[in-house]
Design a protein around this nucleic acid. Sequence first.
DNA 1: GCTGTGGTTGGGAACGTTCTCACAAGTCGC
DNA 2: GCGACTTGTGAGAACGTTCCCAACCACAGC
Lengths: 348, 348
Amino acid sequence: MSRRERPRSSPTIGDVAKAAGVSTATAARALGGYGAVSPAVRDRVAAAAEQLGYRRNSLARSMITGTTHTIGLVVADIENPFFARAARGVADVAHAAGYEVLLVNSDEDPATERAAVRTLFEKRVDGLIIAPASTDVGSHLGELPKRGTPIVLLDRVVPGIEADAIVVDNERAARGAIGHLVGLGHRRIALLTSQGLIHTNQMRLAGYLQGLELAGILVDERLIRMAEYTREAAVRETVSVLALDDPATAIFTTDNLMSLGAFEGAQRAGRAVPEEVSIVGFDDLEWTTIVRPPLTVVAQPVNELGAAAARRLLARLAGDDGPPRTLTLETTFIVRGSTGPAPVHATG
Amino acid sequence: MSRRERPRSSPTIGDVAKAAGVSTATAARALGGYGAVSPAVRDRVAAAAEQLGYRRNSLARSMITGTTHTIGLVVADIENPFFARAARGVADVAHAAGYEVLLVNSDEDPATERAAVRTLFEKRVDGLIIAPASTDVGSHLGELPKRGTPIVLLDRVVPGIEADAIVVDNERAARGAIGHLVGLGHRRIALLTSQGLIHTNQMRLAGYLQGLELAGILVDERLIRMAEYTREAAVRETVSVLALDDPATAIFTTDNLMSLGAFEGAQRAGRAVPEEVSIVGFDDLEWTTIVRPPLTVVAQPVNELGAAAARRLLARLAGDDGPPRTLTLETTFIVRGSTGPAPVHATG
DNA sequence: GCTGTGGTTGGGAACGTTCTCACAAGTCGC
DNA sequence: GCGACTTGTGAGAACGTTCCCAACCACAGC
């Protein structure tokens, strides 16, 4: 109890060096595994470190090396299963490569996002994976690559920015979904999306419109619903679109929360699925197979989306300085029981 | 283009000071908002910082101040909605107080957890919130508080450790759920939980046993199922427990994944819920109200669990050094359509 | 015996901040 | 008009590590 110099601060590499009877430089080499150290000294230092309970200070290390082995991840809301899955994909790949993940929720708010990016940069993350909230050229996003911090865009692209991106072909996926419904004879197809059109939803809307056009169906604006981003609002819009004089016979939703709302809305409106109304959801969550009928969906490789983003970022950190690449992953259209032939009285 | 000294490294406070014609100490005071600086100098420094695009280096700052404004969060799996919600609760409270969250998945693996705790400590997080995988006295957990890094246990307690904990009364919740089923006349009540009993599940098992004992029901070990932690395994165990000569008339599950499996298992076994088998789930997720029948559940205040953990940790960081406290939050028992009277032929 | 070589080791600078201290220039009270 | 206090400023140490470089040693080659 007599040799305590600092009461409750961690021992430093200097303390270890002193205990082992070597210089700090040598102790650092022994513990850091770089440079040349004789086996005898290495063991002596290791023993001293063990005995003192030495833990390296990454902060000091990062100051010198210029790398923190930390990547920033900015998503809208980790509570949303889509982002949770993507985050898991990111974390797994990052962790395997010795990186940790600093997580921030932006709630789709550009101001929050901007502040988050700034904070993450001040913490000197080695790179950033971000699902950008706004599609306008965020100066805060362009700034980092210029300073040498690579960015990978997750799920959404920002036109003006020079950065890698991992996305799916939302336009094509949506067009395909509409094609499926058209093939079943539907002509009154509603779109249920959320207000404040984020990039992916814009693309899905575009795909919806293209799908209609390909089928020669005129757009009915009353069938395009942009709900507040809550389950209850989605339910209301669904009930409303099913209560039209000429109601929708099919509903295409643009994400998992809207799918949930559409499903519940059909239940609440007392419409049989798929006899009276077909539903196509976006994202394949666990529940889609235990509801009755099970949900037809556009499934995204969500986990892989995150994993690919992390791999891309790691490649940049490893020195890849080629031109920005956009990687487009494939979606899968899974037909289940929630889509069926359009009701007879509503077609032709 | 002529005055660039470092090509693509961020300007330092020294660069700002030089540009503003003051010392680094003064520039630091002006930008850091501490000490005394004259308004004129403050403006001059701010202008120089703005013009150079100065961003403070938190690493260097943390070295001096000894605080990183970062907290570590170790959960089993961020993809699990339970942890995603808790993480959101943590992140919101932390963010409001100016803290960021470093997230690690442990996959319930003690070795991974141990390594994570070590890494987080090396990165000098100010504190740690952890849902510990193992209930044995983790030396890696005891270590940190001794070094002055506070820990808050989330959702699970570790008996030997001196740390705050935020939990729910799992024993009582489980006992109550069993009581509900007993009250409906059930005497063949199965328990569906997962292998490698984590702390919460041990408590829920204990509550289950107590519930049976209170009702004077003898334990039938064939009704206690510990599935591999996958949906498919949960389905199999459910089908199996419903295929007994004297099958279960009710199933109580110990978490949301097991609930999903039980629900699907009943479907696959062709048993009507609740006419032939009642189901009580643990955790109230979005899907529980859109399946038919909707699920009776023990609902936990998951988000609040995380938020409370963060508040507790912040209190510690603010200097609270009272004895460790365990905060027990209330669960809610929500009766929906998945529980009903026991089938006549199976009772008394 | 002198020089060269390769493996070890230590001294000290560097990273970018904050903090402590000393000092200069006012300001106030008497 | 002099000490005590306040306010603003700068010099330099400190945080704990890594990196650069010089020095040392042993040994081989000539």
